[in-house]
Nucleic acid binder design. Structure first.
Lengths: 207, 207
DNA sequence: CCCGAACCTGAGCAAGCGCTTAGTGCATCG
DNA sequence: CGATGCACTAAGCGCTTGCTCAGGTTCGGG
C-alpha cells in the first residue's frame, strides 16, 4: 500500500537518470571514477560493474566523456542546491554560514564518491562542458561570499579579505571529498558539525 | 668569480636528481602530470617535453610509475622539511603554528605543479610506494598535531577536537595546490599570510 | 689511436584502449 | 500471425599505450 517506490523521486540518489540501464551504468561509472580516476577507468570496467557488455554503454551515452559530464552536471547541481537551500534558511549571518558549511560538508562526506568525481575530474571534461561546470562553481562562490558580506555589514563578522576567505571556506569543504573515508571514525554529520564550528571561528568578530 | 653554479645545490628545485637528462625528464614529467594527470600523460609526451626520444626515459627510470614515485618521494620530503623547519623555529605555539601554515602554504602555492602531483596522484603509485608516502604524511600530521597540543596545554589555544582540527588545517593547506593559479591575483606569500591568520583564528582561545 | 662504457635513437611489439557494426532476442502492434 | 522497433551482445577495427632492443654516437683513459 505504500506509494513510495517511485524511481523518479528527486531524493533518490540518481533518480533523475532513466531508463534503469542508463542509471546502472552511471552509478557504476561514479564508483569506478571515484576509485581509480577517470583516465584510469576503462569503458569495459564500467560496463562490467553494471553487469552489461561494453557496447551497451554507447546506446545510452555518446562517449565516455559524456558520461562524466552527466555525472558532473547532476552532482554540481545537487551540491549547489544543498548549499543554496542552507544559506536561505534564514537567521543571522552566523547561523546561515554555519548551516551552509554543515550541509555542504555533509554532502561532500556522505556522497564522497560522487563529490570526488565532481570536484577532481573537471580537467577531463571537454572545453564546453568544463565551461558549463565552472559557471555552477561561480554560483557556489557567490553564495558563500554573499553570507560573508552580510556578516561584515552587520558587524557580526570580522573578515578583512572577503574573496580570499570565501575561497578558503569552500576549499576546506571541497577537500573533504579527498580524505573522507567511510571506515573512518567520523560520520558525515560529525565532520559537518566540526567544520561549521571552525569556519565560524575563522570569521567571527571578537567582542 | 661566483662559485654559485653548483647543480647539486640543495636549494635548486630538482638539484638532487642527476644526471642532467634524468632531471630534465623528471621536470618534464612534473609539468605534464600537473597539467593533465598521471594517467592522461604518455611517456611520449614526457620525452617530447624533455626534447628526447621515448626510449630515453627507460635508461633513467625503470617504469613510468617509478618516475612518479621519485617525484612524489622528493616532493614529500621537501614539504615535510619545510613544515618541520617552521615548527621548530621557536616562539609561542601561536607563532609556531602561524609560521608552519605560512611556510607550508607558500610551498604549495609556489611549487603548485609539484604539489599537485605529490598530493593528488598517490593512488597511481604501487602499493609499496604508496605505503612509503603515507608514512611521510603521518609525520606532517604529527607536526601539526604537536603544535596544537602544546597550545592547548599552555592555554593559548582552545581546540576541543585536536585530531579533527589537525586534519582541517592540513587539508586547507594542501588544497591550495588544487586551486592556486600563477595568473591569479595573489602571490604565494600573500596566500600564506592570509591562511596563517585564518588558522590562528580557528584555534585561538578568546579572552 | 682504439677500446669500452655510458647514453641515446629509430623502429616496432604485444596489449589494451574507445568505439562501431552486424546480428539476436523480445515485447508490441496491426 | 508476421512485421516493426528497441535494447542489447559478440566480435572486432583502428589506434595508442608502456615498454624493448639492436645499433649508432660520444668521450675519457690506456
Amino acid at each position: 500500500m505504500t506509494a513510495a517506490q517511485d524511481t523518479t523521486a528527486e531524493d533518490v540518489p540518481w533518480g533523475e537518470v532513466a531508463p534503469e540501464a542508463a542509471r546502472k551504468l552511471l552509478v557504476a561509472a561514479v564508483e569506478a571514477f571515484a576509485e581509480r580516476g577517470y583516465h584510469a577507468t576503462t569503458t569495459r570496467d564500467i560496463a562490467g560493474r553494471a553487469g552489461m557488455s561494453p557496447a551497451a554503454l554507447y546506446i545510452h551515452y555518446k562517449t565516455k566523456e559524456e558520461l562524466l559530464h552527466r555525472i558532473s552536471r547532476i552532482g554540481h547541481d545537487k551540491a549547489l542546491e544543498v548549499l543554496s537551500a542552507a544559506s536561505e534558511r534564514g537567521g543571522s549571518p552566523g547561523e546561515r554560514l554555519a548551516e551552509a558549511v554543515r550541509s555542504f560538508v555533509r554532502w561532500h562526506a556522505g556522497r564522497h564518491d560522487t563529490a570526488r568525481v565532481v570536484q577532481y575530474e573537471i580537467d577531463a571534461l571537454s572545453e564546453e562542458h568544463r565551461a558549463e561546470i565552472v559557471e555552477l562553481r561561480r554560483r557556489s562562490d557567490a553564495v558563500v561570499r554573499g553570507i560573508l558580506r552580510d556578516g561584515v555589514e552587520s558587524g557580526e563578522f570580522d573578515v578583512p579579505d572577503v574573496p580570499g576567505t570565501t575561497l578558503a571556506v569552500l576549499s576546506l569543504c571541497i577537500d573533504v571529498a579527498r580524505w573522507f573515508n567511510v571506515r573512518g571514525r567520523r560520520s558525515p554529520e560529525e565532520v559537518g558539525e566540526l567544520y561549521a564550528d571552525l569556519v565560524l571561528r575563522m570569521v567571527s568578530a571578537r567582542n
